[in-house]
Amino acid sequence: MAAAEDRVDPIHQFHINDLFDLGTFGGMKFAFTNSALFMFVAVGLVFALLYFGSSSRSMVPGRLQSVAEELYSFIRNLVHQTLGEEGMAFFPFIFSLFAFVLFTNFLGLIPYFFTVTSQLVITGALAVFIILMVVVVGFAKNGVGFLSLFVPHGVPGALLPFISLIEIISFLARPVSLSLRLFGNMLAGHIVLKVFAGFIVGLAGLGIGGWIGAIGPLLMTVAITALEFLVAALQAFVFAVLTCVYLKDALHPHH
């Protein structure tokens, strides 16, 4: 690896450590990892927010209840606008997806905490599950008519095979882009943060002049942290929106 031992390794934060081993089954090693721990922390936080936010049941919401209700209405409106009334069956799924991604993103921004969404296997599994769900729902709702998604209107007959091929490729690229977008954003953001934080440590080791020089990267780190909060919320939102958009294709392939 390029990183020398005395420098801050920006990749170290993505290492998965086994907290306790569960053994090997069928050649696969299973363990309760730090990744799993933070998944459950996120799940617990989401549930706690919604549970305790709704425990007072007051007409005029308090602080926690406002947050819970805002989150609820935000996703509810999103699903309702994109998918309509028949899409409300997917509301719990979209909400879980958004809350899971949002909370794991935010948890990752706390120093020393693990970012679950910076693992390609997590985002990939979510994206593949979404696309499989789109396909299953599409065929269940429309039967063979779902395939009309790949046959756009008003295309001349000679071009149709090529256009359909492109449509199919673009459909298959969806889970790839969906998972890589979230993964890449989280990974890149955390690497950049770590690199700038590494500059601070490196400069501070040079003595008093380096301390003054370290103010620059420190300010940069603060600014990037703020940007990363924006990115964390935005990527969770985009993930939920794109899931809705793809599900809309499943419900209404003729557009």
């Binding site: 090693k29 363990a31 990744s35 799993a36 459950f40 799940v43």
Partner: peptide, 15 residues
């Protein structure tokens, strides 16, 4: 494998 296992459990639990 372990990440997928725990993701399934955690996300299923959340859902």
């Amino acid at each position: 494998p372990s990440q997928l296992l725990w993701l399934t459990i955690a996300f299923g639990l959340l859902y």
